[in-house]
Every structure is written in structure tokens, then in C-alpha cells.
Computed example of a mutant assay.
Amino acid sequence: MYKTMHKIRKTYTSTLFHNGVNISIVKDMLGHADGAIHLRHYIYNIKNDEETDDLVRIALSGNKNIETGNQIKIEI
């Protein structure tokens, strides 16, 4: 599979952001002056549908422990 440098930058940026790296740090690492550029053009959802649904349930419940299937996910 071939990926352009632009696609690699998008994957890199999205992975950093979704793993908790502050947008201002990501912005500085990529050499942009404005973090909003990343939110509009670089960051996309790297989770599958089930993981996305779990994250939404956690965010809306206010509860850090959410049972998903046979597992309990605990946010630290």
C-alpha cells in the first residue's frame, strides 16, 4: 500500500491527538502557526465504530467505568 506524505502527516497527527498529545504541541511539531488547521484538515477519527460508540457512552455518562460486551473499560 502506498501513502503520500500528506496522508502520512494526517495519520501521524491524528494518532498523536487521539492519544492525548495537546493540539498546541502537535501544531508545533508540524510547524504550523495555527492549531485550528489541524482540527479542520489533519485530524480524523482513528477508532472503529465500536470504539467510537464506547468513547461517546463514556463521555456522556460521566462514569469512567463502562461495560462493553464482556469487558469493562476503565479510563485512567
Rank of each mutant, 00 (worst) to 15 (best):
N65F: 13
V21P: 08
M5H: 08
G62N: 10
H41L: 00
R9A: 11
H32T: 02
S14L: 05
N45S: 12
D53Y: 14
F17A: 01
I66C: 04
N65T: 09
N63M: 14
R9L: 14
A59T: 03
I8P: 05
G35R: 10
H41E: 04
I37Y: 15
I72C: 10
N19S: 10
L60W: 01
Y42K: 00
R9G: 01
Y42F: 14
T13C: 15
G20T: 07
L60K: 06
H41A: 00
N63S: 07
K7A: 12
R57F: 05
G31F: 00
N22P: 15
D28S: 05
S24A: 13
T15D: 13
K3I: 11
K64C: 01
L30H: 06
T11Q: 14
V26N: 02
R9E: 11
I8E: 11
D34I: 05
V21G: 15
S61K: 08
N70V: 11
D49F: 13
N63I: 06
R40Y: 07
Y42S: 02
N70P: 07
Y42L: 02
T68N: 15
R9Y: 13
S14H: 08
Y44P: 00
L55I: 04
T4I: 09
D28G: 10
T68W: 13
I43L: 06
T11C: 08
H32P: 05
H41N: 06
A33G: 06
D49Y: 10
N70D: 14
K47M: 12
D53T: 15
G62T: 03
H32L: 12
Y44C: 02
I37K: 07
A59S: 08
V21W: 11
L55Q: 13
N63V: 09
L60P: 00
V21D: 11
I23L: 08
I23P: 00
L39M: 11
S24D: 15
N19L: 04
N22K: 14
S24F: 12
I46R: 04
L16C: 15
H18V: 02
H18K: 07
L30D: 01
R9T: 11
L55V: 06
Y44G: 05
H41I: 00
T4N: 11
I66D: 00
N48G: 05
I25P: 09
D53H: 13
T11H: 12
G20Q: 06
N70G: 11
R57M: 08
T4D: 12
